[in-house]
Design a protein around this nucleic acid. Structure first.
Length: 685
DNA sequence: ATCAAGCACATTTTT
DNA sequence: TGTGCTTGAT
């Protein structure tokens, strides 16, 4: 973040914009976040009621950060009612807060795991093999979600997701054959969702968007609550999100910031051309540009600019560094990912001891969560503190879901997934018996009957206990107490089921869950928003984001993040892992120009995170880019990879290259004589 | 019917 | 790395 407090002219102009709607096109590092923060603060200082300003971002983390920073610029508690949220959690809040308007308040928000289980139930005994094509339930979910997010037809979505956009006779024929089957399954999935009163992530947006679009009264009600909508990362909004925003054009003022060159969510339906259409779609709107980069030195921008120039797409963007020149970026050649990981560890320890840098000055970026696994192993062994961004969500851990399943039943007795999970959690009840009990539940859904169902289902004391537990949880109006009570009842069972790592890993999560629960006023909001809330992982252990909990005992740590989760982050030293052939662009996108270009933007986002030192590592043995088995033999298709590889024509002058010798022990002996590292040259996978 | 252990397998990116 | 599926023992 910039440390000086002055805004430049362009930023100032945007902040004080006096018209109706504004789009700020802001390149990487040009102070996008600062501008949105200053805008919010400006509005509040000008007397706008903070509760009528809604900030929308893509991650909870970004939302919290912006809100905190706005508050810190304002005197006293002026910004206390300012609200920042993701699109999804905002919609969830609206649904809960206006139960009559949206009519979905008693519904349960389900996560992707739950979606998958429903889809599996639906597919059940259907045969999903069509000739050589086999459709997996997860793929059905993806197609369904893609279609709804992009507003594209099923046929078109199938073509894009399942057939990689191929257009030929065979494809058309296959498409025609499978489409009716897919349609039937998706309809069944929808029916099941409705019957059990589930809302998946897309439904959250859809429910709110459709109601606002169709219902004048809904619009005027919300118009009383929201005056200003500030939207971050506009280039990542997809057609569904746009339908959500569209009604607000007539009832409040939009202030959007974005950068077409940083659009990296097309797999979720985002289309960066949307930002180009802003002026056409939004009447009474203007577009401003911010082009001065405050973050990086010129060398870092040179290589980033070079990357964009190589694209067939015109971005009309050339970042210029206000800060002037610095170090040349480094391109480090390694021969496998363990060597890479050890080299990165060496580098960080060297910076820490010799250059007086802190661990937190380092940001390590990888394409996928999976890729950074070996790095994490090395960091743990070599005692480098780190946190990961973009890991598995706290609420998705098995032991947490077990406990939450009971609360979900209380919240929504139609919730079959929760019933199955809770019932099979009981000793001696498997799938068969659980679904039999479920039948009884469905037949007489009367809430009064539920305790007796428990009693009938389970012999003797157990059933009685659970029936009582259900009753007493229902009585509580405090979410934290509900968690306590559920934990009390389930702790023994949990400890037994997860006895392998209960004490070390799982037990400690429950006090955390309790604290999280305390921050939600109702059970519905806890279940829904808790799912949407991001957590960080500290040395492999789940930790909730700092705004929710004061877990910052160790502030100084390296950040390991996927590039997708790193938007808005920046660091003194930024290391981008595995900028190798078959990774940039990824072997998956090789035959698709749009995907190749998206990969280019991904790399661009990664590079522009660096403030002073940018390091790209590259794996020289071409097969390790993805897992060995996923790729043909080494040397197989070198030609096509060589043609598309982004760094292929990289001018020598833009980087300093070095190659790490492939030698056992060279690196580790030199740097850490007293740790024994048995991993070099050994692939344990 | 339930559960644990063993084996095979496949891995973008996120709300 | 973990997780999903089959198998064999209770």
């Amino acid at each position: 973040m910039q440390s000086d407090h002055k805004l430049n002219d362009g930023q100032q102009k945007a902040v004080e914009f006096n018209g109706k709607h504004l789009l700020v096109l802001a390149g990487a590092g040009t102070g996008k976040t600062r501008t949105i923060i200053a805008r919010a603060a400006y509005l509040i200082e000008r007397g706008v009621d903070p509760s009528k300003i809604q900030i929308l971002t893509f991650t909870k983390k970004a939302a919290n950060e912006i809100v905190e920073r706005v508050k810190s610029t304002l005197p006293q508690s002026n910004g206390n009612n300012l609200s920042g949220a993701t699109f999804h959690s905002w919609c969830n809040q609206l649904i809960v807060r206006f139960p009559n308007l949206f009519g979905a308040a008693s519904y349960t928000v389900i996560d992707p795991d739950d979606q998958l289980s429903i889809m599996k139930m639906v597919c059940g005994n259907h045969n999903l093999e069509f000739g050589k094509l086999r459709i997996k339930p997860q793929e059905l979910i993806d197609v369904y979600s893609f279609a709804r997010n992009t507003k594209k037809s099923l046929t078109e979505s199938l073509r894009q997701k399942l057939f990689k956009n191929r257009k030929d006779g065979d494809t058309d024929y296959e498409l025609k054959t499978i489409k009716p089957h897919v349609e039937k399954l998706l309809r069944a999935y929808q029916a099941k969702k409705a019957e059990q009163r589930y809302l998946d992530y897309d439904d959250l947006l859809l429910v709110v968007a459709t109601q606002l679009k169709d219902n004048q009264e809904a619009r005027s009600i919300l118009a009383q609550h929201i005056e200003y909508l500030l939207v971050d990362e506009m280039q990542d909004t997809n057609p569904l999100q746009w339908t959500l925003l569209d009604p607000f054009v007539s009832i409040c003022k939009l202030f959007c910031v974005g950068d077409d060159a940083q659009s990296i969510y097309s797999f979720r339906g985002a289309d960066f051309k949307n930002v180009h259409l802003f002026k056409d779609r939004v009447p009474e709107s203007e577009v401003y540009k911010l082009e001065k980069n405050y973050r990086s030195t010129q060398e870092i921008l040179d290589i980033s600019n070079w990357l964009l120039e190589k694209s067939p797409i015109e971005y009309n963007k050339k970042l210029e560094a206000i800060r002037g020149t610095g170090e040349l970026p480094q391109l480090v050649n390694v021969s496998d990912e363990w060597q890479e990981a050890n080299w990165v560890a060496d580098e960080i320890l060297k910076n820490y001891t010799d250059e007086d840098r802190m661990f937190s000055d380092h940001l390590i970026l990888s394409r996928s969560q999976y890729y950074a696994k070996s790095l994490q192993a090395v960091f743990i062994r070599r005692k480098i503190p780190y946190v990961t961004y973009g890991g598995r969500k706290f609420m998705q851990a098995a032991h947490i879901k077990d406990l939450v399943s009971l609360l979900r039943i209380v919240n929504n007795p139609y919730d079959e997934i929760a019933w199955i999970r809770f019932l099979t959690f009981q000793e001696g009840i498997g799938e068969v018996r659980a679904s039999r009990i479920l039948q009884q539940v469905i037949e007489k859904i009367d809430v009064e009957e539920i305790p007796s169902i428990f009693q009938n289902a389970m012999p003797g004391e157990d059933g009685k206990k659970i029936a009582e537990l259900y009753e007493s949880i229902k009585e509580k109006d405090d979410v934290g107490k509900m968690v306590d009570m559920a934990y009390e009842a389930m702790a023994l069972g949990l400890a037994f089921r997860y006895r392998r790592d209960w004490e070390e890993k799982r037990k400690g999560d429950f006090p955390v869950l309790r604290l999280l629960a305390d921050s939600y006023p109702t059970l519905g909001e806890f279940i829904g928003e808790g799912l949407l809330d991001n957590s960080e992982q500290m040395n492999g252990v789940n930790v909730l984001s700092e705004s929710k909990l004061n877990t910052a005992e160790n502030k100084d740590h390296v950040i390991i993040s996927t590039i997708h989760s790193a938007k808005g982050l920046e660091a003194d030293v930024c290391i981008v892992l595995n900028v190798s052939p078959k990774a940039f662009p990824s072997a998956w996108s090789l035959d698709n120009l749009e995907e190749i270009e998206e990969d280019r933007r991904v790399l661009y986002v990664a590079m522009t995170r660096a403030k002073n030192r940018l390091i790209l590592t590259r794996n020289t043995s071409s097969i390790t880019a993805v897992h060995n088995r996923a790729l043909p033999t080494p040397g197989g298709q070198k030609t096509s990879d060589a043609e598309t590889y982004f760094l292929n024509e990289l001018p020598d002058a833009l980087v300093e290259q070095k190659t790490i010798a492939h030698q056992f022990g060279k690196v580790r002996d030199a740097e850490t004589p007293n740790t024994i590292d048995l991993s070099s040259g050994m692939d344990f996978s």
